[in-house]
């Protein structure tokens, strides 16, 4: 057995997904009143099309990847959290944390923390500019949304 190429293992993943999707499509309940086309038809057709396309993908020759698309050279140096993939993972975690802390902390505090924190983490060392820029953008948006547009944003622990 030869090693699967990129397209082939992508095809396997997509095929698995389409099978899963079809499984859910079959659970869409039928509507009690007669309908020429019920809610389940489209999902079923989509599932089959995706399965068929993933078979086609399996046999498609992968395009030659541009060398620059592979960030391999950078992965060797430094701890994981400073590597390219580490940056993606940490940024994702920061976004998730932001989502969960937005309401308890309030909009202004959470957004400023995220902005200042990420900028720092990405390697910007001029702290005063960082803080000033983040605060002004966040406060500007906050005032625009709450005062001008009358949209409610969570205030959290700060009094505004």
């Amino acid at each position: 057995m030869t090693r699967l190429n990129t397209n082939q293992w992508l095809a396997v993943v997509l095929l698995a997904f389409s099978v899963l999707y079809l499984g859910f499509a079959w659970q869409v309940p039928a509507f009690p009143l007669p309908r020429p086309v019920d809610s389940d038809l489209f999902p079923k057709v989509l599932g089959f099309i995706l399965a068929f396309l993933s078979v086609l993908l399996f046999f498609e020759k992968p395009a030659i990847q541009e060398a620059s698309d592979e960030p391999e050279d950078a992965t060797q140096q430094g701890p994981f959290w400073l590597s390219p993939w580490g940056r993606v993972v940490i940024t994702s975690l920061a976004i998730a944390a932001y989502a969960l802390l937005l309401v308890p902390l309030g909009f202004v505090l959470a957004s400023t923390l995220l902005s200042v924190g990420l900028t720092l983490y990405y390697g910007y060392r001029r702290h005063s500019i960082n803080l000033a820029a983040s605060l002004s953008v966040v406060l500007g948006l906050y005032l625009l949304m709450t005062k001008v547009m009358d949209v409610y944003l969570p205030t959290g622990v700060l009094p505004f």
């Binding site: 932001y98 989502a99 957004s111 902005s115 990420l118 990405y122 001029r126 500019i129 960082n130 949209v151």
Partner: peptide, 27 residues
Amino acid sequence: PRPLLLSMILIFCMIGVYGLSFSVFDL
């Protein structure tokens, strides 16, 4: 500076999405 720009884009996206539905789930 690139680091500042990246975090600004993130903030804009998140505020934009939250302003659409006020939903943490959407974030």
